[in-house]
């Protein structure tokens, strides 16, 4: 069973990278890891009461969760597991450890570097780390499309693209 790392920025739109990745994945079941870079706080009290669960709860909004569930329902026979794994490190060594620790086999990243919006939830880009590592990468075409206020939820992009 392969484990795939896919960068995410917690927008419903970015789930379409996952959708494309799963479309191109032909054989067997896979484990999906959605990767996200998040700096840890410098405050000792914040670290003392740190819990991944609550951080993730803050990051995942309803739309993202819904989009994730749609994909999980659609590809339920292909996805063995899907989880979000935060990366807190600063350098390439830390990222290599992250890859090793999560037993990641390869990664699927968007073609253009500007595709993700990390400022949206105060995170940082892990794509440069992925590119520098000796991980096999596959690129998919993906451009961010912001939902304008007139368009309501951005779920429809995922559904109509």
């Amino acid at each position: 069973m392969k484990t795939i790392l896919i960068p995410t920025d917690f927008t419903a739109d970015s789930i379409s990278i996952l959708k494309n990745a799963l479309n191109s994945e032909k054989d067997e079941k896979v484990n999906i890891i959605l990767g996200y870079g998040k700096r840890l706080s410098w405050s000792i009290s914040d670290l003392l009461f740190y819990s991944t669960k609550s951080v993730l709860k803050e990051l995942e909004d309803d739309e993202f969760t819904e989009a994730k569930e749609i994909i999980m329902n659609k590809y339920s026979s292909k996805i063995n597991s899907l989880r979000v794994e935060l990366f807190h490190g600063f350098n390439q060594n830390a990222f290599n450890n992250y890859i090793e620790g999560n037993k990641i086999d390869y990664s699927v990243i968007p073609e253009s570097d500007e595709a993700m919006d990390y400022n949206y939830k105060q995170g940082f880009d892990i794509v440069p780390f992925i590119k520098k590592s000796n991980l096999l990468t596959e690129t998919v075409s993906y451009t961010k499309e912001y939902a304008t206020s007139a368009q309501g939820s951005s779920l429809f992009k995922l559904l109509t693209s």
Binding site: T65, E69, I70, L155, F156, L159
Partner: peptide, 14 residues
């Protein structure tokens, strides 16, 4: 389009 999350069925007409 029709999609289904864990709690909702979502129908989109465009």
């Amino acid at each position: 389009a029709l999609a289904v999350s864990d709690t909702y069925a979502i129908i989109i007409i465009k």
